[in-house]
Amino acid sequence: MAQPTVAKQRAASLGPVGAARSKRRKAGVVLQPKVGMLLVAPAFLFVAVFVLFPLAFAIYISLTNWPLIGPYHFAGLHNYAALGKDPGFLHSVLFTLLYTGIVTIPILAVGYGLAVLVRSNRRGAVFLRTAFFLPYVVGLSTLSYIVLLELQPNSGAVNFVLAKLHLTNGGTTWLVNTNLALAATCVLVIWFASGLTMVLLIGGMQSISGDLYESADVEGASWLDKERYITLPLLRPTIALSLIISIIGSFLAFNQFFILTQGGPGTSTFTVVMWIYQTAFVQLHVGAATAMSLVLVAVVGLISAVQFLLLRENT
């Protein structure tokens, strides 16, 4: 005689009603995968068409010499192997890392400072929040064009102000010097992106219970202590999110450099995405550019994963 299953033993112990419920539960367990598949099918279809298919296509293209025009042939891993020997690509990677390293902390720090400034509901806070967030709403491309005009020698507002302050002669050519161009672009991006960080951090700050601050006040904690021991630890997930968004944005930088420096002088301010664009649409080597893109996707994904692990709430 076969041994009764655990379910049967349990059903027997529960009586007739319990047995029926257990049967339904069992039936539910059997049907669950099919129902689940059916429910996620539309979403999966969407992902398959707009993510998986392009990704698979991109992988295929990256394994060919795919030119923009004309026939192509399978090239194996040649495009990937060639990346390590492409000085332009390697330089763009280093430049992108440098740029990311420069702007990430200032964006967070300025965003945090702005959030502290406007997190309360005192008079004018809403106006200031709007004002600080406005650059993000205007958009990086528009801001870049504004900055491009204002950095013009002899006619731009920046040079005019500096000349009035007797700091320069008003003829500084900001965008044709690597260091000055990088500095100007970083200032622009910090101005642009800190508003978003501010909004994210305000959301996090407003979700912290006021009781904690009241308790700290009773204990005689200073403002700095409250920030250090209450706000910052509880904001950790929000800070992680802000950093991930900021770093991914920096890794994918394109508009600001494309408009302000066009990668120059020479190729000194080419970011990775600009180099990919150049490879695909100027040099017309789509296969090589796709390989670069896939490597970038992998690196950004890896960095995001590591960052997420390091900054998650329970570490």
Binding site: F44, A48, L52, F53, A56, F57, Y60
Partner: peptide, 14 residues
């Protein structure tokens, strides 16, 4: 399995 149609479609387009 779900990835395969995508790859096939990619190759087809190619």
């Amino acid at each position: 399995l779900l990835l395969l149609p995508a790859l096939a479609a990619a190759l087809g387009l190619a």
